[in-house]
Write a protein that binds this DNA or RNA. Structure first.
Lengths: 168, 168
DNA sequence: TTTTATTTTCAATAAGTTTTGAAAATTCAA
DNA sequence: TTGAATTTTCAAAACTTATTGAAAATAAAA
């Protein structure tokens, strides 16, 4: 397999993969393209390589920046903006975990806590089933929350450890 | 808050939550409804409680059965089919992990292995960037794969399952 | 300042996905 | 068998989300 063929395949699969995770195809494809490209790219490069419109690139790039997965890069002497993706997959993963935790898990845990404070006779079969299920989900969610914090910390420490090595 | 209000809220939030995970709103809502309802329900019950069509219930229930999250229940003397959801959230989670691993992670790892076998000079900056990134993602994916297997095993193993209950 | 390059916005439209509902198929009892 | 109850299917319609592209805004150069 040739490099360009392989790139195309990766971009296309990563895009399809994304749709199973509530991420839009194009956003995942742009991310994939930036992941496997050594040098930063401009909006025009991305438009051309993925055959998509300027507006589409612009919106999705900004979304990726919002997720902390892509950075604007300013090349000296260049008028255009360039973009590049974090290549360390652990950093990518912890960044995604951090964001999804904040956007989804945290609000869900808050809601579940409220739902457990239900009025009525705790002996009632229906009420019991409800509070038991909600309680179970909440406990599970809290557990997951803790575990993810540990993963994030581990990655940050690893990063710090490596950063410090540079100064030794 | 009253039971029915709380149920409605849970169903609606669980549905919205699902859309961020590539699951359709209705499927997640049906799952939520079955999770918080003590007794099994018929298609008609679900139609009524969620105000959706018969066809919609039927398709999504079958999808949920395909994911191993919902079971058909036959009540003696009843002509209609009843449906109920697994209520133990750990079992729900491991079931989802198992399925997604099979449907998404395994094929992705297979593809990444192929993409690493690329033709050309390994010293070339572009080729190096590509194989490094793909290799990194693959290593990470394999790691995740192992970790998920451990979680699944833990849940399936009686002793470990009981040990885990201490943390639930 | 004016001009030109570049980025951003957003209404219109295209594409994709979900839902409906009626007809067909199936199941079970009489 | 036949017929009523129930489940399944699937084309068409409704709804949702993504994409385009041209116009407006912004930034840099002349």
């Amino acid at each position: 397999m040739k490099l360009n063929e392989a790139k195309q395949q990766f971009i296309s699969s990563w895009g399809a993969f994304g749709t199973h995770w509530g991420i839009n195809r194009t956003m995942a494809q742009i991310h994939a393209l930036l992941l496997v490209t050594a040098s930063p790219l401009t909006q025009d490069d991305i438009m051309e390589q993925l055959s998509i419109s300027r507006g589409n690139v612009n919106m999705n790039i900004r979304e990726l920046i919002g997720w902390g997965l892509v950075d604007r890069v300013l090349l000296t002497g260049e008028r255009k903006e360039y973009f590049s993706a974090e290549k360390d997959i652990w950093k990518v993963a912890t960044q995604i975990i951090k964001e999804r935790k904040k956007r989804e898990l945290d609000p869900m845990l808050k809601l579940l806590a409220q739902l457990e404070e239900i009025e009525g006779d705790k002996k009632d079969r229906n009420i019991k089933q409800f509070t038991d299920t909600i309680g179970g989900i909440r406990k599970f969610g809290k557990q997951a929350d803790k575990m993810l914090d540990i993963m994030i910390k581990a990655e940050e420490n690893w990063f710090m450890a490596n950063l410090l090595k540079l100064f030794k």
